[in-house]
């Protein structure tokens, strides 16, 4: 087993364990912290795939901005005052069973798919570097890039309008 495979398994187990802890943990703040750990593990996967730009963007946007937003909302909401709402045991069991059924169906359906043994390029390849992605982003994808700025503006206005009343 090479270094890449060992790193893959470590990052995968870290991501899965933290993902389960998000659902299980009682305190929402702990859930946020576990989610940050998931994002770091996924960024590690991006680095392993040599998608360096996406690894950095994932950390900056998700772990940096979005999670801080989540933490701010959790601080705004008085956690002491509210009791954490819980579903009944039956609903929980049915939810877990549904998730497991979906997992089983998807994995069984995809195990017979074409090219499941095809390799992904892990260390080499320079398509994930900033230089290459930047060239394509500002030539082929210029219009979607500009439209996304309008999307951000409308989201900002929407958030302010919703939050004002």
């Amino acid at each position: 087993m090479g270094v890449t495979a060992i790193l893959f398994w470590i990052l995968s187990s870290l991501a899965l364990l933290s993902a389960i802890m998000i659902v299980v943990s009682k305190n929402p703040v702990h859930s946020v912290l576990w989610l940050i750990l998931v994002f770091f593990a996924i960024s590690g996967h991006y680095l392993l795939l040599n998608a360096q730009f996406l690894a950095i963007v994932n950390i900056i946007v998700y772990a940096g901005a979005i999670m801080v937003l989540f933490l701010y909302v959790l601080m705004l909401i008085d956690l002491k005052k509210i009791v954490d709402p819980q579903r009944s045991l039956w609903i929980k069991l049915v939810g877990v069973a549904t998730g497991c059924c979906l997992l089983l169906v998807l994995i069984a359906a995809l195990s017979k798919a074409d090219q499941t043994t095809a390799l992904t390029q892990t260390i080499g390849g320079n398509i994930g570097l900033v230089e290459n992605l930047g060239k394509i982003l500002f030539s082929e994808y210029l219009v979607p890039f500009e439209i996304s700025s309008i999307l951000f503006l409308s989201a900002m206005v929407g958030a302010v309008v919703i939050g004002k009343k």
Binding site: A19, S31, I91, T98, C100, L102
Partner: peptide, 15 residues
């Protein structure tokens, strides 16, 4: 699927 289980099981909107 862990995400789907979380959506189905939890009632806290933030989670």
């Amino acid at each position: 699927c862990i995400g789907i289980v979380g959506v189905l099981v939890r009632r806290n909107a933030i989670i």
